[in-house]
Design a protein around this nucleic acid. Sequence first.
DNA 1: CGTTCTTTTGACGAGAGTCAAGACTGGTGG
DNA 2: CCACCAGTCTTGACTCTCGTCAAAAGAACG
Lengths: 269, 269
Amino acid sequence: MSLSDPAPLQPFLTRLLSHSALGETERRAILGLPSHPAQIQTHRDFVRLRERVGHACFVVEGLVGRFGQNRDGKRQITAVHIPADMVNLQSVAVPEACSALQALAVTTILRIPHEPLRDAATRYPAIAAAFWRESVIDAAVLAEWVVNVGRRDARSRMAHLLCELACRTQATGRRVGLRFEFPATQAHVADMLGLTPVHVNRTAQALRGENVIRIEAHAIEILDWNRLVAIGDFDPGYLHLGPAAAEVGAGRPSAAQPPRIRPAFQANM
Amino acid sequence: MSLSDPAPLQPFLTRLLSHSALGETERRAILGLPSHPAQIQTHRDFVRLRERVGHACFVVEGLVGRFGQNRDGKRQITAVHIPADMVNLQSVAVPEACSALQALAVTTILRIPHEPLRDAATRYPAIAAAFWRESVIDAAVLAEWVVNVGRRDARSRMAHLLCELACRTQATGRRVGLRFEFPATQAHVADMLGLTPVHVNRTAQALRGENVIRIEAHAIEILDWNRLVAIGDFDPGYLHLGPAAAEVGAGRPSAAQPPRIRPAFQANM
DNA sequence: CGTTCTTTTGACGAGAGTCAAGACTGGTGG
DNA sequence: CCACCAGTCTTGACTCTCGTCAAAAGAACG
């Protein structure tokens, strides 16, 4: 357990409280869970397919992708996890990993052993309900990804992904204005959207050319939220983030264009 | 509650027992849940987007699709549910429907009110765990669909879908040999695979032309399981069906081809 | 027995993939 | 401090899968 930080799991509790009511006892049970911090290097699989895992992973810093794979090696990212996300809470219910987990950037995680998690869920029905709800929301995002990949063209897909990430970073309070950290490469984005890296590059250029987004080294800035939402056909309902999500673009009139900025060439997306 | 059948929820219990251990008390609690049968006509949405639902739906007979939708009206099916599936157990955890549910054929469902389901989960931790696990497996299927739509071509996608359905019908004991009921139209299949109906038609013809599958009025027969698995790049692990799933093609040497049968034109797929 | 829904076909176009090469960046080590 | 190297991003030319549009022919159903 991390002794340096008195309550390393406070962000996890905050997440649970965003959708589930927990009493004082349950809150203490969550905060009292043991956790072990770990640093994961970029491109490292820290959970392999079929592996039987014994702990859930909470993202403190960085970016994690859940990977599915083709026989001929084509990879598809089925979910991305940003700081304050629990990557594989579902492994508590089904320990055999049916997708690999890879760090897309240098990432800090907290490992929380299954045993105490299961104990907490068994002892407190409200915690069991909260964990279940967390998994269901995760699945709702997954369903939206099926729609994204199945029924939208490249431009819409990318816009939709960026909208989703904007809302999710907003919810964790880690976003300043309409700019958020996103240390993934274009190849990663290609795997999220079911496209090729080349096509992602061209699509990203198109969105930049329209002054809808700006791409920095390891971050995205949204210049025109309303237009991005329109392009991506985005409706945040499925994220179940509560009323805060509706305020993403507030105070940012889409007419007010900042001066055109030269796109950051070579920058990671 | 259906008074005609003493234990209408036996199939639901069987499903839960396939992945979770439940004691005698918990089993009785499941079987004792109230349920209300209902007939749903083809193409009828029995749960609309955003609707706050008050009961879960168990499929007794027929076929149900979970629909996502584009702004420009393009639909994408994110999940199909066959008899013995619980369509929206997740609604117990999150009552606001974030996808519509539509019957793809005349369907009989059992409605089970949320209240007693929630009670059972609260009272018996093992039941809460079983429900959670059920949802997680559902999500695993969803993740595989993302891979299917994102990283496989039309031919593979269709083969993969048919393999999945074959395994799932197998698990419910409703499949005779390698033939199973599948009363969906080609337009429905298009919405499952993220393709157009025209392309589904051509792809299906190709698979028939290779003697891999046979299409009947409301059923599919798999003529060459091994080849279908190879084409679809299928690995049943994600379905979490237990050892039985591995025996799908058992006793069915792929070399033994039955006589070529004229495809059933006009037949629903 | 005709209406409606599905399936089937053909011709054509467009979005995305493939291949290959070059440019820029950041990090490493001499 | 500079040269080099690996990883990313960028571009162009060409290909191909899949979408679009339109029409006809079978089934299903009342």
